[in-house]
């Protein structure tokens, strides 16, 4: 494992922790698994166990339209918060975020699109806390690593 992939794993650990905290704080929901994968200009995140107890009850009682509406609204509320987390944790500006949930499978998927033009500048601009979070203080730039990770 090289230094860059090591930094990337550190970065993923922070990302997973923040995402778990977000669902816990906002919806009192414990995520069962998080998977992520980074590509050239995007980050794909899969969150399992996102459906809350009230939504499950609504779905069980055939309130299909209402549960869909609730989930769409929750996704729209959570989406900018995921964007903030990703931007705080990773040295990229997010230009777009797309997310969807299937109630039956209890799974949410998100694709985060990065602006990569100012990558080096962004890394240089990271404040001390962010650099410490990423373990980037030894001057090694966190890099994109194609490995998959689960939490």
């Amino acid at each position: 494992m090289n230094a860059n992939s090591h930094h990337f794993r550190q970065l993923q650990t922070v990302l997973f922790r923040e995402l778990k905290q977000l669902y816990k704080q906002q919806l009192n929901q414990e995520l069962s698994q998080i998977t992520c994968r980074v590509f050239e200009k995007s980050l794909v995140i899969l969150l399992e166990g996102t459906i809350t107890q009230p939504e499950r009850i609504l779905a069980e009682h055939q309130n299909t339209n209402l549960v869909k509406k609730v989930r769409e609204s929750l996704d729209r509320i959570i989406q900018p918060q995921i964007k903030n987390i990703v931007e705080n944790v990773m040295p990229f500006k997010v230009v777009d975020i797309l997310s969807d949930t299937t109630i039956e499978n209890n799974c949410t998927g998100a694709i985060v699109i990065f602006e990569l033009e100012n990558y080096s500048e962004n890394v240089a601009k990271l404040n001390k806390t962010q650099r410490q979070k990423l373990g980037a203080d030894d001057g090694v730039t966190p890099a994109l690593d194609p490995s998959i990770n689960k939490a």
């Binding site: 899969l46 230009v95 777009d96 797309l98 997310s99 949930t101 499978n105 699109i113």
Partner: peptide, 19 residues
């Protein structure tokens, strides 16, 4: 097993994840 899909009209971008 699962097909997740979302789009933003402002950017014109669609993202799909197939499990």
């Amino acid at each position: 097993l699962d097909l997740l899909c979302d789009a933003t009209v402002d950017t014109g971008r669609t993202g799909i994840i197939a499990i």
